[in-house]
């Protein structure tokens, strides 16, 4: 069955994520961060930040609510049971700190097929409350047996 490419270019509703201090600390501990900028609000303020700083890969937390819907969009017909995460890219702008509100918009960048595999590429653009782009994510999922 060929992959359905109709949805290429489709954009989803933006999702707002309010970044919490304890969530940053929980995430930082789970990934083994020891830099006090992520864990200690006093250290972060001494370094000139308004609050604890999110590790760059915290992008997965604030973008997740926006990138979930395309994966489960019936129009895309992505077979989730056969999906693996093939590759990932993030490009970062200014750092995210606790108290920021991040708005992420996801879109379907590409859908293609090669050697019986479907390649589904989603893009997420995340903007902070000052309108600065804090992250662009490119999420490539591979579905076996299309």
């Amino acid at each position: 069955m060929p992959v359905n490419k109709q949805a290429i270019g489709k954009t989803y509703d933006p999702v707002v994520y309010a970044v919490g201090r304890e969530k940053i600390k929980e995430y930082a501990r789970a990934v083994g961060e020891t830099n006090p900028l992520h864990l200690d609000v006093d250290a972060a303020r001494e370094a000139g930040y308004a609050d604890v700083v999110a590790p760059p890969m915290f992008a997965v937390v604030y973008s997740a609510p926006a990138v979930g819907p395309p994966i489960f969009d019936p129009e895309i017909e992505l077979n989730f049971a056969m999906m693996v995460h093939g590759s990932q890219e993030f490009q970062w702008g200014p750092v995210v700190v606790a108290g920021d509100e991040i708005t992420t918009t996801a879109s379907v960048k590409d859908i293609s097929e090669a050697d019986g595999r479907g390649y589904y590429v989603f893009e997420s653009i995340s903007i902070n409350q000052r309108g600065e782009q804090v992250c662009r994510g490119t999420w490539t999922n591979i579905v076996r047996g299309v």
């Binding site: 961060e33 900028l37 999110a54 590790p55 760059p56 093939g86 590759s87 750092v95």
Partner: peptide, 20 residues
Amino acid sequence: RAQTEAAGGPAHLKRLSVQF
């Protein structure tokens, strides 16, 4: 984390792409 520790903090990492 290997990059930010090498470069001196989280603000230094501007892009990362990986293949799983």
